[in-house]
């Protein structure tokens, strides 16, 4: 029987990509474009910019496939970290991106739609935990991680004392860690 790309593991496909096989990249793209696009859209809030960042992400996969080490984590984690970096770099290089204060975040999260690509229900639980955080904690975590702001920048934007921002992030992160551990 012929071996089909669709049947290969992420790891094998990454090996093929590092050897220059474009069809393997196309397969990885079809597996992960949805979460990558969702993440970049969440960060950039503009379809066009999100498409650009997603594209850059897969170009990086093409270029850096050989550096992917499955022993250090899953491909999706690696990919999403790259996607975040690409999207944040766009924000940082471009002032026209408005700072969203993250208050409408909940509206963009559809909890009924399971992450199709993800079997890991624990991560879905984490999404739930994030949504269930007190709004003030969720907001600062969103601004830090999905807008690329430091705690000092967040304090300036929200007009809060730096210590308040820090402690909100810490409280929220502790709860999220517990959500992950308890699972």
């Amino acid at each position: 029987m012929a071996e089909r790309l669709q049947d290969l593991t992420d790891e094998r496909l990454m090996g093929l990509i590092s050897q220059g096989m474009q069809t393997a990249l196309v397969e990885i793209h079809s597996r992960y474009i949805s979460p990558v696009y969702a993440l970049t859209l969440r960060i950039l809030q503009q379809q066009h910019a999100a498409e650009d960042a997603s594209q850059e992400t897969f170009l990086r996969v093409w270029q850096k496939a050989a550096t992917f080490d499955p022993a250090r984590g899953s491909l999706v984690a690696w990919l999403m970290t790259i996607a975040r970096n690409e999207a944040i770099a766009i924000i940082r290089s471009n002032r026209r991106f408005p700072v969203m204060l993250g208050e409408d975040e909940q509206a963009t999260i559809d909890l009924n739609a399971p992450g199709k690509y993800l079997q890991d229900t624990e991560w879905r639980d984490l999404r739930l935990a994030l949504v269930n955080l007190p709004a003030e904690q969720r907001q600062v975590i969103e601004l830090a991680y999905f807008r690329g702001m430091t705690h000092e920048e967040i304090a300036a934007v929200l007009k809060l004392p730096p210590g308040t921002v820090k402690s909100r992030i810490l409280l929220g992160m502790r709860k999220l860690r517990l959500a992950l551990v308890e699972y």
Binding site: S34, A77, R84, A113, G115, L180
Partner: peptide, 11 residues
């Protein structure tokens, strides 16, 4: 936790 936040995107 941070990775989880990245990965747990809605479809």
């Amino acid at each position: 936790v941070a990775t989880g936040l990245l990965v747990s995107q809605p479809f």
